[in-house]
Write a protein that binds this DNA or RNA. Structure first.
Length: 626
DNA sequence: CCGCATGTTGCGATC
DNA sequence: AGATCGCAACATGCG
């Protein structure tokens, strides 16, 4: 019998500790093992990214590569510059592996990519081994135990988890690795479709990321930011398994009380250097730290702590349970999870700046309707951190520069953009976070935006974060604002959250004038005026949310998909829910995006049980007649 | 069918 | 300072 020749394909599992997939590869007792990473054009061009997350990825790859080399001097993380769908069929012929092993990915793109690769492997006679490992439980198993439905609450996740069985105990890192086999790349390189490039905004130089399958020197080196034409990163947060394990050790061994009694809602969103939470999320995203290793080490600390230890959902364990909940929700819903349209579990709200959709697939195209120019300006000011509300602006500037803000800070800015201020589509906000967060995890990001926008997971839209008092509760003096908005550094605590209330004398004392819109006209020594009256906007949004709830539409409703939802929001004074959307739609009527043909019109793939879409069964929901 | 408790993390007044 | 309550604007699941 032939000794196994194994390609181990690293993706979002950039670690050696507790990797069930890597262990499965080693259990084959292979003769040769190639640890590879494919530089996938999908992520390079078709997904939103920022230089800070790219840096974090490279950190993780470099650290992993060094760890591999420590186990075998001949080996390292070999990076191949081509899309896996075209690369693997050629690799199977050239390298003649017997097995391909990788960790399961339940992201929408990940699934289709892995199906294509598995098919190519079958055709080449290469055996594929896939092991779950990215979550506490296999997300597909959770979905199965939950009746094929998405987990929409922690209770549901916990119930399904109970049925799925205990969370796997962590595995040790390997102590040795086989040699890599020969690696000929004497075949044509398929070059990717580089346009449109959603990462164009972080490139300042020439993109040379696809110069040769084995890279510019032919040595399968890890990419560099220069090679990609990216500017240097601005974040102080650095990746890599070594850093992750060190941070975990410190949490468990030095901050035992903190770990055992952790209550998320009591950690401050205003605290920085050091921040009030663990900042382990980016390591989880890249798989530099196993979430099960984290789980069991925290579990042991909690178990030995006794009385006074915290428990889910507020505890550290609770945080990773939420992660699994969102993963399982996404695993059940697939691509529709990421959007309102076609999503039976996402409430329809007629937001401003709604996504354009592909007429054939029903999927969001990444572009959006500008139904109301004012809302577009609000969105741009929110993005840039110049809304005129210092608490919001400080958080957005921290996000833009460091790629990380506290969870409750994310709540503040997300509520403000959607149901608690701008009434802008949560999909716009999710896209900005997708681009800028170093810990961006598609399932968690989408889920949390739906939560904050009160379209899924959470419904109490009357609980609205104030851009003034919420920050004040944590940070009376406004230190976070002073850190990120230097123009307000000298403003007194009395006005730091509401600088527009400063009389001229106070503005003089602080050396700042409150004027302008924060965009093109902004001058040095000024801070913009607030872009609207928050109390007024809060009231408008809340009554608009009430109407949307009363309409009771979900994303898979045909009224949502064909545009006939509009008569349900008929009152002429409902500027909030109509805007100029109608005329915008009219102008674009022939581009097909409101044409129900092929948009899965009358037969949504998933039917909700319990008739939550059924207006007739709940007359209460119809009381929106003029 | 009802009533009630619960749901990771609101605000503001009040004690 | 920190807990409690009313606000009034929710949906779900349990008994």
């Amino acid at each position: 019998m032939v000794k196994p020749r194994v390609i181990y394909w690293f993706r979002t599992d950039l670690r050696l500790h507790d990797s069930p997939a890597l262990q499965a590869a080693l259990d084959l007792e292979p003769d040769v093992l190639w640890p590879i990473f494919t530089w996938d054009p999908h992520y390079v061009y078709k997904a939103r990214g920022g230089v800070n997350r790219w840096q974090f990825l490279l950190d993780c790859q470099n650290d992993l590569s060094q760890s591999i080399t420590r186990l075998n001097k001949k080996s390292k993380l070999f990076v191949l510059r081509e899309g896996p769908q075209t690369l693997f069929p050629k690799l199977f012929k050239a390298w003649k592996p017997t097995h391909l092993v990788f960790e399961k990915d339940t992201d929408a793109y990940g699934r289709s990519r892995d199906e294509a690769v598995a098919k190519a492997a079958r055709e080449a006679g290469v055996q594929v081994i896939v092991q779950p490992g990215r979550t506490l439980w296999d997300s597909d198993e959770i979905v199965k135990q939950h009746g094929g439905k998405p987990t929409m609450s922690i209770a549901q996740l916990q119930a399904a988890g109970k049925k799925a069985g205990p969370i796997a105990k962590p595995m040790p890192a390997p102590t040795s690795l086989p040699d890599p086999g020969d690696m000929p790349v004497d075949f044509e390189q398929d070059l990717p479709e580089a346009k449109p490039d959603l990462n164009a905004n972080c490139r300042s130089g020439q993109d040379t990321g696809y110069k040769g399958i084995a890279g510019p020197k032919g040595d399968f080196a890890i990419e560099t930011l220069e090679e990609l034409g990216f500017s240097p990163a601005t974040t102080p947060h650095r990746g890599g398994e070594t850093n992750a394990l060190k941070a975990l050790d410190e949490l468990i061994e030095k901050n035992t009380d903190y770990a055992a009694t952790f209550q998320k809602p009591k950690t401050s969103p205003a605290q920085f250097s050091p921040q009030s939470t663990t900042l382990l999320s980016p390591f989880f995203h890249f798989g530099a730290l196993s979430v099960r290793l984290f789980y069991w080490r925290v579990h042991d600390v909690v178990a030995s702590y006794g009385r006074g230890a915290s428990s889910p959902p507020e505890s550290l364990i609770g945080q990773v349970l939420f992660r699994d909940m969102y993963f399982a929700a996404q695993a059940a819903l697939g691509q529709s999870f990421a959007q309102t349209a076609t999503n039976p579990y996402c409430r329809f709200v007629p937001w401003h700046l709604p996504s354009k959709r592909d007429a054939e697939t029903g999927l969001a195209t990444g572009e959006y309707h500008i139904d109301k120019q004012e809302a577009e300006v609000w969105f741009q000011r929110w993005k840039a951190g110049v809304t005129g509300f210092p608490w919001i602006d400080a958080l957005m500037r921290q996000l833009n520069e460091e790629g990380w803000i506290h969870h409750l800070g994310r709540h503040s800015v997300a509520c403000f953009l959607t149901r608690g201020g701008c009434y802008v589509d949560w999909e716009r906000g999710a896209e900005v976070f997708e681009e800028r967060l170093i810990d961006h995890e598609p399932a968690c990001n989408i889920g949390n935006w739906q939560w904050l926008a009160c379209v899924a997971f959470f419904t109490q839209y009357y609980r609205c974060y104030s851009p003034v008092s919420f920050g004040q509760k944590w940070d009376k003096n406004g230190d976070l604002i002073r850190r990120w908005i230097p123009e307000l550094k000298k403003v007194s605590a009395k006005y730091i959250y509401e600088p527009w209330k400063m009389p001229p004398s106070a503005q003089n004392d602080a050396g700042v004038r409150v004027t302008g819109d924060g965009l093109s006209t902004q001058q040095d020594g000024t801070y913009p005026k607030p872009m609207f009256d928050f109390a007024e906007r809060r009231g408008i949004c809340m009554s608009a949310m009430k109407k949307a709830y009363a309409a009771g539409l979900y994303g898979n409703d045909e009224k949502v998909l064909d545009g006939s939802w509009r008569p349900l929001f008929p009152s002429p004074d409902e500027a909030e829910v109509m805007g100029e959307y109608e005329s915008d739609y009219g102008e674009n009527a022939d581009n097909g995006d409101e044409d129900q043909e092929g948009v899965d019109g009358g037969s949504p793939g998933h039917k909700r049980s319990g008739g939550r879409n059924d207006l007739e069964s709940k007359p209460k929901r119809q009381k929106m007649k003029p």
